[in-house]
Design a protein around this nucleic acid. Sequence first.
RNA 1: GGCGGUGUAUCCGAAUUGGUACAGGAGGGGGCCUUAAAAGCCCCUGGUCGCAAGGCCGUGUGGGUUCGAAUCCCACCACCGCUACCA
Length: 843
Amino acid sequence: MARSYDPHSIEPKWQEAWDRDGLYAVSEEPGRPSYYVLEMFPYPSGDIHMGHVRNYTIGDVVARQLTMGGHKVLHPMGWDAFGLPAENAAIKSQTHPATWTYGNIEKQTASFKRMGFSYDWNRKVVSSDVDYYRWGQWIFLKFWERGLVERKSSPVNWCPSCKTVLANEQVLGGGDCWRCHSQVEKRELEQWYFKITEYAQELLDSLDQLAGWPERVKTMQANWIGRSEGAEVDFTLCDAEGEPTDRTITVFTTRPDTLFGCTFFLLAPEHPLVHELVHETEYAGPVRAVVDAAARETAVERASGEAEKVGAFTGRYVVNPVNGEKVPIWVSNYVLMEYGTGAVMAVPCGDQRDFEFARKYGLAIPPVVVAEDDTLLGELRDQRERVMDDVPWDVAYDGPGLMVQSGQFTGTPTGKGGEGMRAVTEWLAERGQGRFSVNFRLRDWLISRQRYWGNPIPAIHCAACGLVPVPEDQLPVVLPSDVDVTKGETLADHPEFYETTCPKCGGVARRETDTMDTFTCSSWYYFRYADARNDQAIWDKDKVDYWLPVDQYIGGIEHAILHLLYSRFFTKVFRDMGLCDFGEPFTNLLTQGMVRMDGEVMSKSKGNVVAPEDMIAEYGADTMRAYILFMAPPDKDLEWSFEGIDGMYRWLSRVWRLVAETAEETASGCGVAASGDEAAKTLHREMHRVIGKVTDDVSRFQLNTSIAALMELTNAAYDYRNSVAQGERDLPLIRDVAENLTKLLAPYVPHMAEELWREILGKDGSVHQQEWPAFDASAAAADVVEMAVQINGKVRARISVEADMQEEHVIEVALTAASKWLEDVEVKKVLVVAGKLVSIVVG
RNA sequence: GGCGGUGUAUCCGAAUUGGUACAGGAGGGGGCCUUAAAAGCCCCUGGUCGCAAGGCCGUGUGGGUUCGAAUCCCACCACCGCUACCA
């Protein structure tokens, strides 16, 4: 009797063998189709969690199946190793961040090997290795050469807990730090930026090319980039006496057609002009109060939408370019310095915020756009001058309509994208007081961090020469290892690091002590996998052209904007630098769902973590892999449950017995002629149906249904055994089923399949290097099909007909089968859906 | 408030894109094997009416389009996610 399924004895054995034989090492082979499967590389926190298991198992199944299907598959893994947790852990446990990080990498690598993932570890990249981060510094210098690096002072997000600044993308809704969830503060600081806004338009436009990306990710990116079309309008600033000066303040507006309804003008509290306008005037006090209140206002209050709109008049005016009216300048907390120009033309009849503000402070609300069905229109239709100073509305109107009280533009149809917008903007442009303009919500990417455990920014501050890039031949700027992080030290506390000389003038200079955002490391790692050990160049373009772009990228939805936007930006710059020929890095994207428990995302802080290692210890990695895939489709959230894992183990044991017993039964050869009876035909057909189903399901990432199909094939094989006595079985067939089932299982349960293949079925070579079973559509097709007969949409009968029966004949059979429903009625129409149903319409 | 997603059996979920609703698993029930249990193997498992054949109802709710709707359209409800004073 064959031994039973014992994952714990076979899994470590094959893991070692695969390692020893270098089974998963790949190289370029021009002429053969390449495929690049990539899962987002992890931060080495030390533990693997269910999210990792799910993410990496999905990728592993795809990689293994495509390899068997004849592709050269690149399936690498590495570590996003810089970052703050290492520093926090260092302080907590009095170790060095490097010790902690590399220790975790070792632990986690062992966990990944226990899962049986098919990575080519020769291509491993670790972002904290100097061999890797030196090229990150090189990228920084190249970006600088291309004018994409800028150091500027600006209000930035400061996380008091992480003691560093953050990019806009890294501040969550509600104003929380993405990493530690502390409240972020605004500070005016000089920082380093990557000018991602230079690529804003292209980042938006080329989303259209990403047919293989989920719609919602593209929508999120488009919203984040936030393109608005409109106009810039120049308002002339008046002096303290109310006389026009030669200075102007420019605003951005999406509704230049409402300019005649502008009754006040707003500046953000942080606007540099505010102080000057009210300095030593009676208005200084109230304005100061608004500015101070806004500074105290936390992001939460702002984000809640509950923040009361407050404002104060500055005592000064601007001139409205369309009608020469003097408009009072106010300061209010609802104007954002970060968006547009930090100044707004307020049109209370058309903008809800302006409307509320006007009502609160008793400012005029003259209607300038009126809907065609509004009763006001009768009164105002041809009214060029302003005769009405308030509207009888409860809310602002921003829909389409006709322009009124708008001088020569009165009567023009308008609305978003309407004729009035163009007419007013053209008129302004002719006078040099405005122009068409496009505004983006996307800000430049703040990349400097005041932390130790990151990639040093290769720049030098020289009193004489200003900012000087570290010359390329002086790279890398090595991160010194003797900084005492446990005392909270950073590079700025380390004179040996920052004391240097200017590469230009040779004078005394100071090396930059900020490090780069870790998202700069993860923006190009997938390029480096193509040529990970290159120490002469960042990569060999031929290798990148062979493997990239990534055919299938798999990762969490949490990077819908952050990592995926930054990576798209990097790729476009690389293309412009001639480092690659494409502008989009990831052809297909799968955002796998989260693993939850009790309705919440699994996390240490919630205490609802199920450790994969415990599951492996109990059931083995193969059961764990198959189970997590089977629980839900990969892109959906998954509610963890212990309920079904026994069932998965049971099925695998069942497969084991089937294959083992078949191996015994056919041990002395399959010399018996095929019986060709009905049961055998059914099993043969089922085998081919499942080959087709599994192959197709994997291409659509329906890994839960592909496993279901494999279960069906198992059931069909058992049905055959139960219906045909031993000795009468079709031995070539059952042998074929056992071998094909083993191959089909190989991507899901690689260890078990390998053991069955080599030890039980006695084959030479790894199952993972076998050819994927070929799908024979004709073998999978049934020769008799069951069809439904519908009468007026209701199923009234079922018929079994030959699959190739002529349509007229099928109709005949259907009419006979449903004859009792057809008495005393007239058949008006008959439709046949081949192999499915016959629909009869009667009157 | 805006954008997006989801809603199918007791539970997780299928339904190859408008064609026989509920595959597969879990859970539940029954049987075989066994002195017994475990394991294994087999069968049943939406509601309702009916002795049965079969009928009727059923994919969050209500309408619509169609010979035919879980699938398309409209309105609404619930839950989840992202985003939020973006001028």
